[in-house]
Write a protein that binds this DNA or RNA. Structure first.
Lengths: 344, 344
DNA sequence: CTGTTAGCGCCTTCAC
DNA sequence: GTGAAGGCGCTAACAG
């Protein structure tokens, strides 16, 4: 690997001092127009770019934002983190920085990794994801004055939490699904949920309940099933709701995996998804679009989340949070018109 | 953010020179045992870690490996890159370095981004993914003496390519699937493929053909359908194969999305996946495990790929490549015993 | 507006 | 085995 051009070489070639080249780069206003032009020509000619480490050493910054890649259940279908990371990388780049990836155990056990990165001045800030209730990282970082932003909340309530955060409004999402189903003419809408006590699951259940209440349709206990394990009980859960008599004509699921369970339960009864019973999911996983019929789902606004996260990194006293609404993506599972379209 | 401890502070506190501390870290053999112990105590006490930028400035290395996050079709179900990136991050860390993420357009259009990173000395090497036939990056990097390793081959044949590579043996994968189906008693095994001319698709087709030939079962044109667009023609493609008369009793699909098309086509005919017709996929996407019945698929050995990639980065004259076999994950779609298990 | 000086924190070279 | 000097490439602070 040949050595890269240095500022000194540019300066020599342009017949100016090193500092003038530096100014041409970092404070063009301080340089006379014709000098600026000449310096820039040499910079282009030589393909010069300031060495990030040398610049960082001087400015006490690394230009890197730390992001922890978490372990994830191999069978989790809710893989929007992939899209999120892509969006985050692009947003961070827009500010002239880059994302540095690292691994760390969840909870307090992983804190030494954050500490190591800071001790080495390897990152300027952290972008936190996979936020858990009572997550110790937020307070730990806030205490040390380390800039960070969190995707997700640490509290189960609405109380304050250290540092700024961005989250997706789950209640708004399921409410959108309910309103969409009402427009399609449904009036008995069931809910297929996650276990109680999980903030994501509870929010999504609440949105369903509220939207039903607002529309004056039933949202009783008969219409709700919350399954303990989304990978085992899914089918059974869906079946419980499908009481042949007054069973629901539409099902709102708390995520795409649960919705897939409903697909199977319906198929087992000889019912067709989308025509006999409508189904909606949540997260708009890659699976949603390849299912037949396509699964109506709520797309996580990862691009907007990423943008806000990066903005918050640079707002020193940012606090409090921001809830972003997911976007309903309608497919054949809730609207037969889309089935005809050609998803298959 | 408080300033981090420096080597000088450690030296002062331990009553030695800076150099001795540096040696204690980088060449412990050169330091007398008792001095070493004392220095280490101070290092622990102060939580000292060498500044990565300062060290890198001196040693002409950044400790960072560049990885380009590619644009991906939003509806692609073949999302094993998520797992791969996680594995890669862990492997790179094992060597004391980190992964730096960046975005770049595919093909030659994206090369300026690689050039920029190199001009800034921001990365020591690149790990290439999403390799395309005729990918210009490999030659470009090789010409400049930049260390890199490639996940995937640039050639459509078996010819040489610049730099070391690792790839997954698609033919071996589909051959495994065929042998598995033969063991299950199938003898008419169809293939649901991708368009010809794509190396990944062609390899997977070849494995099916060869394994069938070896077993002496038919692998004629009647048993193959290659669909142009995996998102539109999937169902039709599967239907073409399901000739009620002598149609296949098992289908090997070139990826999980195609397999899902088969699920739909079978359901439309009132046939049950796994009992009436067996189906296998490829990539073991997250979807595979949440389908009902679970989809037998070939798991990409991303952990092994990641490990080899990182090893190859440090073998200066590494050339040629390595084919790794995927792992068959059997589920209900090809073995009814697994359906009973509790996937649903 | 331009140039000079002085480090940022570390490691390499060379004395001792 | 240990210490002192020098410089990696850059920018902040000041001088002209």
């Amino acid at each position: 690997m040949p050595r890269a051009t240095t500022l000194e070489q540019v300066a020599a070639r342009a017949g100016v001092s090193r500092q003038t080249v530096s100014n041409a780069l970092n404070a063009p206003g301080k340089v006379r127009p014709d000098t600026l032009r000449r310096v820039r020509e040499v910079i282009d000619e030589l393909g010069y770019r300031p060495d990030t480490k040398a610049r960082g050493l001087r400015t006490r910054s690394s230009g890197l934002i730390g992001y922890c890649v978490a372990e994830r259940r191999a069978d989790s279908v809710n893989t929007f983190m992939d899209r999120y990371l892509r969006a985050l990388t692009a947003e961070v780049e827009r500010t002239g920085r880059h994302v540095l990836l690292f691994t760390a155990a969840p909870g307090a056990e992983g804190l030494p990794v954050y500490e190591d990165l800071l001790a080495r001045s390897a990152v300027d800030a952290f972008v936190l994801s996979d936020t858990q209730v009572g997550d110790p990282r937020h307070e730990w970082l806030a205490e040390r004055g380390v800039p960070f932003a969190s995707f997700g909340r640490t509290g189960s309530g609405t109380g304050d939490q250290p540092g700024p955060w961005v989250d997706v409004d789950g209640a708004d999402g399921t409410a959108q699904a309910v309103r969409h189903l009402l427009e399609q003419g449904h009036s008995r809408i069931g809910f297929l949920g996650l276990p109680e006590g999980n903030r994501v699951g509870d929010d999504r259940a609440e949105g369903w309940r509220r939207a039903c209440a607002e529309a004056g349709v039933e949202a009783s206990g008969d219409l709700v099933v919350r399954c303990a394990d989304e990978h085992r009980d899914r089918g059974e859960a869906a079946e419980l709701l499908l009481d042949p008599g007054g069973g629901p004509t539409a099902l709102v699921a708390a995520n795409d995996a649960l919705a897939l369970g409903a697909y199977a339960a319906l198929a087992a009864r000889g019912l067709r998804v989308g025509t006999d019973v409508a189904v909606t999911g949540f997260d708009d996983s890659p699976t949603a679009s390849v299912l037949v019929p396509g699964l109506t789902s709520l797309r996580q606004p990862v691009e907007r989340v990423a943008r806000r996260m990066v903005e918050l990194l640079d707002e020193p006293d940012a606090a409090g949070g921001e809830l972003l609404s997911p976007e309903l993506v309608v497919r054949g599972s809730s609207d037969p018109v889309h089935s005809a379209g050609g998803q298959l």
